[in-house]
Nucleic acid binder design. Sequence first.
RNA 1: GGUGGCGUAGUUCAGUUGGUUAGAAUAUCGGCCUGUCACGCCGAGGGUCGCGAGUUCGAGUCUCGUCGUCACCGCCA
Length: 583
Amino acid sequence: MFRTHTCGELKITDVNNEVTLAGWIQRIRNHGAMTFIDLRDRYGITQLVIDEDSSDTVKKQLTELGREFVIQVKGTVRERSSKNRNIATGEIEIGVVNITVLNSSEIPPFTIQDDTDGGDDLRMKYRYLDLRRNKVRDNLILRAKMAHAVRSYLNEKEFIETETPVLIKSTPEGARDFVVPSRMNEGEFYALPQSPQVFKQLLMIAGFDRYYQIVKCFRDEDLRADRQPEFTQIDCEMSFVEQKDILETFQGLTEYLFKEILDIEVTEFPWMPYSEAMEKYGSDKPDIRFDMLINDISDVVKGKGFGVFDSAEFVGAINADECSCYTRKQLDQLTNWVKRPQIGAKGLIYVKCNDDGSFKSSVDKFYSQEDLKIWADTVGAKPHDLILVMSGDREQTLSALGELRLEMGNQLKLRKKNIFKPLWVVDFPLLEWNEETERFHAMHHPFTAPKPEDIHLLETDPGKVRANAYDLVINGVEIGGGSVRIFDSELQAKMFGKLGFTKEQAQDQFGFLMNAFKYGAPPHAGIAFGFDRLVSLFAGLDSIRDVIAFPKNNSGRDVMIDSPSQIAQEQLDELSLKLNLKE
RNA sequence: GGUGGCGUAGUUCAGUUGGUUAGAAUAUCGGCCUGUCACGCCGAGGGUCGCGAGUUCGAGUCUCGUCGUCACCGCCA
């Protein structure tokens, strides 16, 4: 061993002990006749002192040391004459007897400290240096603790952790696949799994009863702050269970994590139908830390000669408490905000509810005080409040109002990071019409079971069929989702039919699964949590990059190892591949 | 595929209406300093203003293109 102790453990009770430490030089404070060195490792920082008592050798070595050098130090623990109460080892220091430079360091491109001077680009390029910083390392330690807690909980519930293959088969549904050419099977490709979906269902058919895996998944789609091309799921499946059994089990997991990791009691997990989420929050992942619900005011605003509303399919409003003081400038800014292409609204109408009970709106020309009073009553507005109204196509307007609601929540500081409000969004539609391909797509995935009472709609009105599918949403973040599965080969075949597969295509792509259903498939259901998102939520971060050791950038590149990269012609030849690059 | 922000010293940033030799902080290097812990003080070095074209007497500043990066929309069963 290069050390007898870490840099975080020596205390006043260790005084006079001879110790050996090893670590990185965080900072050197040279006072001429005496010098302090902060020695850092994963566990903490210990102050080294070199003064008149130190040997000439050590004093001479001092001149050659620099930031981020790795050194081994032998010395004596002594009590500091001026103590630092801010750090764990602040009462002691090491009188240095001997220094061994284990490795020197070039001057790092940014300083390794909590408030680093490095920008994101640089930190990613030198991620191994960034990972030396407390904040980044703590995120990964949090991640490790959470993974451990997940395993404890699920193991205790008799789940079997099972690995599934990474080289699998490309399937037409869902996200774009990452593909891997097969050398031994010329012209054929593996795909990396978008999730272990079919394997976990096959494990249920195999009688495993309860499966889980903390597993990498891969989707070749454009990135976001909360989306990486490779990400980690807590993937689970259970047999002989219904929807409520899954929800209870994984509510339990979530409660356990909040308690174990953050030591907080989070026990309210309301169930909200998808339709209600869309109508009241304009989103399938509502942030229920605050209300400001969307109200349908179509009926009360129409017929007064205001063409924009009269011709609109839907008019909706949110009520911002105590915001009647918003200035013209602020309202203009909000209007511009909703008119950005990302929101795409045509405009924004406001009603200020004045202190004296009167109203001031941007549509006073069309609506009397009495009219506006009815609006206010409909949305539950009091004096001092501000009503914000948008109109248009129903779905788009609900969605835009949902975005506006979140923005107002931000402006009013209603989205506190230390408050956690989970909910289950349930009864998702089974199918979703896709304009581009002009066919129905599975909203969750093609193995999701329709609600038994809605099966009859499959033939008449497929878009209306609800699924036994559910999402766990916390603070407006989709943390997890799952469904009760189809376990009948005929119903599964019918689903593939609805999704526009021919019998041959279905057989070719998923024949193995439908065959397996013929050999005694138990009723089963499952769920997967986005582990990166869960960790970033617990860490109070908006980006999952900060909880991934080596993440990729916006363009899916790893700027540290510079991947993806070209491969040698020999490799292409071996794989029988020929490039056909666009200009 | 699209919308927007950013790109200036090793780093983080400022840079006015287009106008003299492009600044600050920090880091680095040198000197002084016996209780610092963001040590302090004095000094020094450090710039292809991302790249390319254009407008102009003159471009870090304006225009177009391009590259990089970030956020978002589309996309993500």
